[in-house]
């Protein structure tokens, strides 16, 4: 049976073209270059980037079974990060830290503890410029709008080896996340 096709009215064609154009706009939007968190955006309030650099590990060194060992944030053995923010309208940075409960050496566990003063941040290396915070709770920092959008973070901790803690090289990881709000 032959089919017949009636041409669409001008109103319908216009509506279809309009819908296609709107879809094209949305498609262009969907395929726009992703705004990379690591990209360059210096001075552009619509392009922001945050970088976190590792400046030093948390090194407890030689530890004897049964003797607690404390590394304060101002100890050279403390973990050390630098957070830099480029671009973006905000000067507020939220720091979140993933902390281990223990260091491991094969099957052996070595408990590590962090307290309310185990971490500190500052916008300079000056010791008296540091602000202590609890690494388990993280912190939010408002940077000086006139100064560089960067800060330093230090993290210490307390090791609590058992009296019969097996000898060995123990290790774990700390992960620092920085978000520009």
């Amino acid at each position: 049976m032959p089919r017949s096709y009636a041409p669409a009215s001008p109103t319908v064609r216009a509506a279809v073209r309009g819908a296609l154009a709107a879809l094209l706009s949305l498609a262009l939007l969907a395929h726009a270059r992703p705004l990379d968190a690591q990209g360059e955006g210096q001075g552009d309030p619509n392009h922001s980037s945050v970088t976190v650099s590792r400046l030093g590990d948390l090194v407890f060194g030689l530890v004897v079974g049964g003797a607690s060992v404390v590394v304060r944030p101002d100890d050279p053995a403390a973990a050390h990060f630098e957070v830099r923010v480029r671009g973006g309208p905000s000067h507020v940075v939220t720091l979140t830290i993933a902390l281990p409960a223990a260091l491991l050496s094969g099957p052996d566990r070595l408990p590590v503890r962090f307290d309310a003063n185990s971490a500190a941040w500052a916008t300079s290396d000056a010791p008296d410029a540091r602000t202590a915070f609890d690494p388990a709770r993280g912190t939010t920092v408002t940077l000086d709008q006139r100064g560089p959008k960067s800060l330093l973070v230090w993290i210490g901790g307390t090791l609590e080896p058992m009296q019969a803690q097996p000898s060995g090289d123990y290790s774990a990881l700390i992960a620092l996340s920085a978000v520009e709000n």
Binding site: S48, V59, F60, V112, I174, L176
Partner: peptide, 11 residues
């Protein structure tokens, strides 16, 4: 914008 980096704890 966000970023994350890890460091080691050693003893």
């Amino acid at each position: 914008a966000s970023a994350t980096t890890s460091v080691s704890i050693t003893a």
